[in-house]
Design a protein around this nucleic acid. Structure first.
Lengths: 131, 131
DNA sequence: GTTCGTGCAAACGGTTTGCAACAAT
DNA sequence: ATTGTTGCAAACCGTTTGCACGAAC
């Protein structure tokens, strides 16, 4: 179980109530929710928290390295609490995004591409979850 | 050089003037332009063509398999006329997207992921173009 | 009392849609 | 006549911003 309050403090973010609510929703959710999705989760417990605060708070968390923002779907950004290297599988049926552990695929340790300095890379996989 | 008119007819798209303009702009542009970027190109020659027509035409082209739409950047969709398998490198400095030939990286021919049926995959690489 | 955090509403950028006019079959 | 294509404007969705109030330091 994660302690949201500690996670925030450790990164110099003052643990206010709205922020704790966003942290709980974002850090324990591995379905790559959108900002609005997180807002919906937060609202259930704290209907007073505004959409702007959720958006701004997510932006803050990204800046502080608590979560990552990805452009995997079209339209809306997806937030990902997993900081370890991993791949993404986009389900063609549902649009859902699944995390694939780095170790699941054998890849070259480093990539050398003439003309480019490679910083990082990962696989984007299209497929379907077996039922 | 490509014959836009033929490309359209071959896929059962009536080659009207706005469509030819969009086809020329989209099919010969390998910089992954956005829809608005394509509109800007089209406008230079045909100022009468509306934004809606460009958006709708691009959507039609994607449906007919003439081009692909990708969610690589945040915010706006990128259109890609390259249908062969390839990887993408996103330049961290400029946001520009470069096509990386499939052969440039050695990857397993097929991916086997327990619980998923893999249809396709490619690398998304973060890096910088060397100057 | 100055800074930080918040809610609200308005603005924003990219995209889609409804509709009326028109062209092609 | 029916269908397909277009332009315009309005609507739309996800996101950001300006502002005023209140809480924390």
């Amino acid at each position: 179980m994660l302690n949201a309050c500690l996670s925030l403090k450790r990164r110099g973010i003052r643990p206010t109530l709205p922020r704790l609510a966003v942290a709980k929703a974002a850090l324990s959710n591995f379905t790559h929710p959108s900002a609005d999705g997180i807002w919906a989760l937060v609202r259930k417990k704290y209907p007073a928290v505004s959409r702007a605060t959720v958006y701004n708070t997510l932006e803050l968390f990204v800046r502080k390295g608590l979560i990552q923002r990805k452009a995997l779907k079209g339209g809306s950004a997806a937030y990902d609490p997993v900081l370890e290297r991993h791949h993404h599988l986009v389900d063609e049926r549902t649009g859902r995004i699944y995390d694939i552990p780095w170790a699941a695929v054998r890849l070259p340790a480093r990539l050398r591409l003439p003309g480019f300095e490679v910083e990082d890379f990962h696989l984007v996989i299209k497929g379907k979850k077996r039922k």
